[in-house]
Structures are given as structure tokens and as C-alpha cells.
């Protein structure tokens, strides 16, 4: 019988310090996520310097918790995986320096992982039978991509945002309405009490056949709506604004993903990233996917947010094909999908 492959993965690209132990790529032994959200709330968003300091303060404890919960020690590890981009450079460097120190001290391979590819890999953990190729929408606070996943290592970007990321638009609108931070979950929640057809915000489908996104138009349109209401001293029904805004974003995301899956004759349309946790997006996609004969997949909410298990999963497929990194590995804040720099 083959020995199990145990990978310890570290993720510190933004404001979650996460360490996970993953066995054979898809079996999570532990996935500890220490969120800094409460620290950043008062600033209305993630402060990079504060995030970096917090990562350094908590990473070793999170690491111990991950080993303990997985009931393994450093001796049992076959490789160390770490997110090396995209993300906040100062934050990435904490995970990276820690991972390199461990890999070197234990003399085991280091595997640099692309954060966005990690988000896609979250689907492998959730859906044990899923294999490439398939089409995936990665949408979060920092990314909005439609990706044709050709294999475990080859990706084709079909479309991406030309301005704001989808999650960023949620954050900005939430802030404009005084809902707080982070905006995604707050809008998702309050929108359930609102009427999605109350206000007709624009949908940016862009030119025919494009899989790109643009969220700045809808963002301005919501801000203008809020301003004009305030000037006229009319009541703003926050739940309706939230629901209508969300609807226009969700419809475009869903329509483009289904179209992309059809274009590639993909059996599956997968969702990944923080925005994949949006309940309305999941619902609309289910409906549209069924109508088009495409199976819609998404990870459970904990695997949609930033977490190290997804990094461990992506690293496993690099490990078995011998694609490891050396100790010179650096943080690459602007890393893109399929980037050859790692």
C-alpha cells in the first residue's frame, strides 16, 4: 500500500492567518483559520501593516493548533505549501518566511502556491470526484476571473474584471450604505429582506462574446441613487438597494459563467472565492445551470473564504508532478492565474 502524502499548508495573503494539514490532496486533517476581521473593522477595511503584524503574532500558534488537530508532528510532513501571491506583500511574506524556515529545518520540499489556483482547488476538496477540465468563476474581494481549468496545472483565463473585483464592489456599496465591513456577507444577509426588482440598476454585459466583467458602472449607479435620495430627503430602503444591487451583480456573474461553460462544453460550472459563498449567486446559478444542463459546483462556505486547506490541495498536485520551489521563492503580490513565475 502506498504511503499517504501529508502536506502542511500556510495561507497569509490577506487578513486570515490559516494553517492546514491535508492528506493526499483532498482529505483535510485540520484547517485552522484565525481571522483578523475584528482588528480591521474599525478602519473600514484591511490595513496591510496591521495585517502583517497580526500574522506574525499568531502564525506559530495557528501552526501548533493545525498540527495538534491533525494529530501529526513536523516529522510526519512530506512537504510545506505556502501561498506566494497574489495578495498583500507584507502579509504573504510572513507565511512565506515561516514556510521556508520549516521546509529548510526539516529538509522537505517547499511548494509555492498561487492563491487563485488555491480557490479553484477548494472544489476538489468538496467534490471528491471532480477532475479537470471544467470552467470556474473565481470571485472574491480581490479577484473576478472566469477560468477554463484545463488540467491541475494548466489554466486558461477566459475573462476577468476590467475595474473593481466583485467582492470589492460589495464592500464599497456596503460602506456607502453604512452597513460596515466586510460588505459581502452583510449585503447577502440584508438583501434577503429586500426586493431585488425594486430598483433597476444597470447590468454590464460588455461587448458580445466577452467574458470580462466591469463593476464600476453599477457601483456608480448605486452611489448616485443613494445621493439623489439623500438630496431629495427621501427614505432609502437599505434592504431593497442591497437586494437590487446584488441582483444585478449576481445576474451578470451567473450569465457569463454559464455561457463560458457552454462555450467550452464543460460538464461543470464551478464557483470559488469569497463571493462564491453568496447565497443568491448560488441560487441563481443553480437555476441557470439546470436550464442549460450544466452541473453547478461550489465549495462549502468555509472553503470559499481564504483558508490553507485549499492551498494544501493545490500543492498536492504540484508535489506529485514534482513541481516544487526553492528557498529563493519570493512573494509575488500581482501573481496571475497560470503565472510561470512560480
Amino acid at each position: 500500500m502506498c504511503k499517504n502524502t501529508t502536506i502542511l499548508a500556510i495561507e497569509t495573503s490577506c487578513d486570515e492567518t490559516s494553517v492546514s494539514v491535508v492528506s493526499n490532496g483532498r482529505n483535510i486533517l485540520s484547517n485552522i483559520i484565525s481571522s483578523q476581521i475584528d482588528v480591521h473593522k474599525k478602519f473600514g477595511g484591511v490595513v496591510p501593516e496591521v495585517a502583517s503584524r497580526k500574522h506574525l503574532e499568531s502564525i506559530n500558534q495557528v501552526l501548533d493548533s493545525a498540527l495538534e488537530e491533525a494529530k501529526v508532528t513536523f516529522e510526519d510532513l512530506d512537504a510545506i505549501a505556502v501561498t506566494c501571491g497574489p495578495g498583500l506583500v507584507g502579509a504573504l511574506l510572513i507565511g512565506l518566511s515561516t514556510a521556508k524556515a520549516i521546509a529548510y529545518s526539516k529538509n522537505i520540499p517547499l511548494i509555492g502556491v498561487n492563491h487563485i489556483e488555491g480557490h479553484i482547488a477548494a472544489n476538489y476538496i468538496e467534490h471528491k470526484q471532480l477532475e479537470p477540465p471544467f470552467v470556474c468563476l473565481v470571485a472574491s474581494g480581490g479577484h473576478s476571473h472566469i477560468v477554463n481549468v484545463l488540467s491541475y496545472e494548466k489554466y486558461e483565463i477566459m475573462g476577468q474584471t476590467r475595474d473593481d473585483a466583485a467582492g470589492e464592489a460589495f464592500d464599497k456599496i456596503a460602506r456607502a450604505m453604512g452597513l460596515g465591513y466586510p460588505g459581502g456577507p452583510l449585503i447577502d444577509k440584508i438583501a434577503t429582506d429586500g426586493n431585488p426588482d425594486a430598483i433597476d440598476f444597470p447590468r454590464a454585459y460588455l461587448e458580445e462574446g466577452s467574458y470580462d466583467f466591469s463593476f464600476s458602472g453599477i457601483k456608480s449607479s448605486v452611489l448616485n441613487y443613494l445621493n439623489s435620495k439623500k438630496m431629495k430627503e427621501e427614505e432609502i430602503i437599505v434592504a431593497d438597494v442591497a437586494a437590487s444591487f446584488q441582483e444585478s451583480v449576481v445576474e451578470v456573474l451567473a450569465a457569463k459563467l454559464v455561457k463560458a461553460a457552454q462555450a467550452k462544453q464543460s460538464k461543470y460550472a464551478a464557483l470559488a472565492g469569497g463571493v462564491a459563498a453568496n447565497k443568491r449567486l448560488r441560487q441563481v446559478l443553480k437555476e441557470r445551470g439546470e436550464a442549460a444542463g450544466i452541473e453547478v459546483l461550489y465549495p462549502s462556505p468555509v472553503l470559499c473564504t481564504d483558508n490553507a486547506a485549499m492551498i494544501g490541495c493545490a500543492a498536492y498536485y504540484k508535489y506529485i508532478s514534482g513541481r516544487t520551489s526553492d528557498l529563493k521563492l519570493n512573494a509575488i503580490p500581482n501573481l496571475t492565474i497560470g503565472d510561470v513565475r512560480i
Binding site: 502583517s52 506574525l56 511574506l93 524556515a101 520549516i102 529545518s105
Partner: peptide, 19 residues
């Protein structure tokens, strides 16, 4: 340098942790 200090600290802590 904030970043410099952290790279050093994370490296040293990582090694000391394992050992």
C-alpha cells in the same frame, strides 16, 4: 524596517518552532 524585521522574526521563529 517593518518588513525586514518580520522576515527575520518569522524565519527565526519558524526554525525555532520546528527544533
Amino acid at each position: 524596517s517593518f518588513t525586514g524585521l518580520r522576515i527575520g522574526a518569522a524565519t527565526i521563529k519558524g526554525m525555532a518552532h520546528v527544533l
